[in-house]
Amino acid sequence: MAVTQAANKRAGSPSAPGRIQLERRSAPALDETEAVFDVENAEVFYGHFRAVRDVNLKIYKNQITAFIGPSGCGKTTMLRTFNRMHDVIPGARVAGKIHFHDVDLYGPEVSATEVRRRIGMVFQKPNPFPKSIYDNISFGPRVNGVSNKAELDTIVEKSLRSAALWDEVKDRLRNSALGLSGGQQQRLCIARTIAVEPEVVLMDEPCSALDPIATARIEELMRELKSRFTIVIVTHNMQQAARVSDRTAFFTAELDSKNDQRTGILVEYDVTAKMFSNPSDERTENYITGRFG
């Protein structure tokens, strides 16, 4: 198995048409850069309950992809399949093809910790560790083998600068992270995530616990980070999706005729500008215009 994987890798990733990211948000069509994730017929189960089914989509490099949809439609569930966060939930199971570049994320030799080092996550509620600001940021690098003090200092400063937090906290790096405001805590969590230099940053409703001003700062930050990271964001806020994302996936929950349970499905996935101006599916249009959800 390992041999074939290695062989695949040697064969090279599928040719990436346009590596250069162009800021063309107004245009209806967006260049398809290299696909980071390739999902085919993905399903997630919690025990016997099927939470999501039949998801097919590609996430493109250095773009912001938004997952929107009503509560219980499986968008967070889908997001968590990308860095194997379901592994820590007893009874959760993922089926279908979920490839990270050309590697099967759920392949037999794949380690969840290796996956998560490359694919970071920012959570709904800011969750700084009850440690100092410095220790929060340096935790990831340390876990991944960086022990040199000077190197850590550099990483901490760089990450905090990237998260637009440096100027606010540079004089109190040794203070507890719990003393920061909610918005600052969330930016700290973003800084902590990018400190390990992941390729992808998953964001699970990162602004839902924040006020509008803090939300605006995070959105600004996301646009800045896009050049370095691929971002997938789950949001309840349609305006937010419209404001920040390049592509939008609309999920909804549908009654499964087989077992009378509501299962999440992907309704439509397209360039954001098109999704919000001219969606092809009626359900998307209803949701976006506020007739449903």
Binding site: M85, R116, P128
Partner: peptide, 9 residues
């Protein structure tokens, strides 16, 4: 979860 998401075992 925050720790796992940073690649900690």
């Amino acid at each position: 979860e925050a720790s796992y998401a940073l690649g900690a075992s």
